[in-house]
Design a protein around this nucleic acid. Structure first.
Lengths: 141, 141
DNA sequence: TTACCTGCAAAGGGTTTGCACTTTG
DNA sequence: CAAAGTGCAAACCCTTTGCAGGTAA
């Protein structure tokens, strides 16, 4: 079985489950979360296989890794339009943003310097609306 | 001694050496590299102190941490104008870029969504001029 | 003296790897 | 059969932490 291949690699059940898990999720999952969810459908899978699958899927471009929390990696299925992330330092929420104008500016900048950009990552930290007001209220002495 | 203070913290010899090391270096050093260099001037310093100093200096805003190599952290002394990084996937070189137009676009975007941005990080990966030609040559069959 | 800071060594968390076994072409 | 993929456990790397000893206000 496994007629499907991705760039020469076999699309095994484990790899497919990892990819589907990321596609089905709207969040940015870390490896442990992917493991947990895949394990519900494939109890014998190991965390090592999840990591190996993620690495492979990243290599093929089907999956992207971001370093949101500055700590460990988070993964998401690649989408047609690239998007970027805003992390709220107050509540931890991650907002996805499209930034076509910024992207365009970056592309021009690279072109002007002769740099060939293959991946652009933009990460913004700050406070979302709710946390801005919460912060104001909370920090009054 | 140590009359200088940074935001209530003592500016100890160790902390000063860590900061100076980053200011003197044009590269983006990781903790181990900082440790190595500081150790040349202060052999008794420990890696733990380097990490603690870096955390403290980050907190004061004197030092910035970037996640360039996707793996461990790299540090640099904060400068007046923010800049961003292009990492060449061929040779590993890191090019610093200023991107005022992109920055402006990001700021507008956040403002439009009511997000208060406190830190913006932009990281571009790709190939520098040299590696573009090298790649072309190298990959001819 | 008290509060802050350091060194050391150990622990921690996320990720990778060696190896034997299984699956696939 | 050879090659690719997996599970398990151990190893690994970077980073943080507990604690006892030091340093400074």
């Amino acid at each position: 079985m496994d007629p499907l291949r991705i760039q020469g690699y076999r699309l095994t059940r484990q790899r497919r489950l990892v990819l589907e898990t990321l596609r089905d999720s709207q969040e940015h999952l870390d490896a442990a979360a992917v493991f947990e969810r895949v394990k519900a459908r494939e109890p014998r899978i190991s965390l090592a296989t999840v990591y190996r699958s993620l690495a492979l899927l990243k290599e093929t471009g089907l999956v992207l890794e971001d370093r949101l929390g500055e700590g460990h990696g988070h993964f998401e299925a690649a989408q047609a339009t690239p998007h970027y992330h805003f992390t709220c330092l107050g509540c931890g929420r991650v907002v996805e943003l499209q930034a076509p104008r910024a992207l365009e500016a970056v592309r021009e900048l690279c072109a002007a310097q002769g740099l060939q950009a293959t991946a652009i990552s933009l990460h913004i930290r700050g406070y979302c609306i709710q946390c801005q007001s919460a912060e104001t209220k909370g920090e009054q002495p």
